[in-house]
């Protein structure tokens, strides 16, 4: 591949980003950085490349370093490519008490990867994360914006089969049409 893909938001995403920027007072457009990074991650393959971050910087009229330092601080932003489905399993105390470690082991066996790795077919990346506010329905995992709770090995199998077959990319962003403001 020698053709570099041009980084630019879709029409829909552009319209949303413009609306988001208007939520803050004049001159405070940098406040839109986190929402725009989420949007960019959803638009450009589930992770933030340097050109993607530079693009966001240009939209907000801030220096690229201001974007890098923020993107690298927050754990939801992926600075490296991830599989189609990013499986994030909570492993903090309350989930651990309800069997999170067994669930993680089960997923590792099923997908043939360890946490932090991506399956060779690029379908799944497995990540362990800290408390997602779902401790009362533990064990749990998040894939994109969806919470999957009260997990059992059977439920996990079903879910992974479904996700693997769907071929869709998981994304934190829900929809680009939801809000008019």
């Amino acid at each position: 591949m020698n053709e570099v893909e041009k980084i630019e938001f879709s029409k829909e995403a552009k319209a949303l980003s413009e609306r988001i920027i208007k939520r803050y007072p004049e001159g405070r457009q940098k406040s839109a950085l986190l929402p725009l990074l989420h949007l960019a991650q959803a638009e450009f393959g589930g992770w933030l490349s340097v050109p993607t971050m530079d693009y966001v910087a240009s939209i907000l009229n801030i220096k690229p370093i201001e974007v890098y330092e923020v993107a690298s601080f927050y754990s939801m932003f992926n600075l490296n490519p991830v599989g189609n489905c990013l499986i994030e399993v909570c492993r903090t105390g309350p989930c651990m008490l309800r069997g999170a470690n067994d669930i993680i082991e089960h997923i590792e066996n099923k997908l043939g990867i360890k946490e932090g790795e991506t399956t060779p077919d690029g379908k799944f990346t497995l990540k362990t994360v800290e408390c997602l506010g779902s401790c009362g329905t533990a064990p749990m995992l998040q894939c994109g914006a969806d919470y999957h709770e009260n997990l059992t090995n059977e439920k996990v199998d079903e879910l992974l089969d479904k996700l693997g077959a769907s071929g869709k990319r998981s994304s934190y962003m829900w929809s680009l049409k939801e809000n008019n403001r």
Binding site: K30, E69, V70
Partner: peptide, 25 residues
């Protein structure tokens, strides 16, 4: 308006939250 965070426990601390809302670490 609703503002999404980025996955950082520390932003529950009120001044860190304000920094984050201003688009910073």
């Amino acid at each position: 308006f609703v503002q999404p965070g980025g996955g950082a426990y520390i932003c529950g601390e009120e001044t860190a939250l304000l920094e984050s809302l201003e688009g910073k670490r």
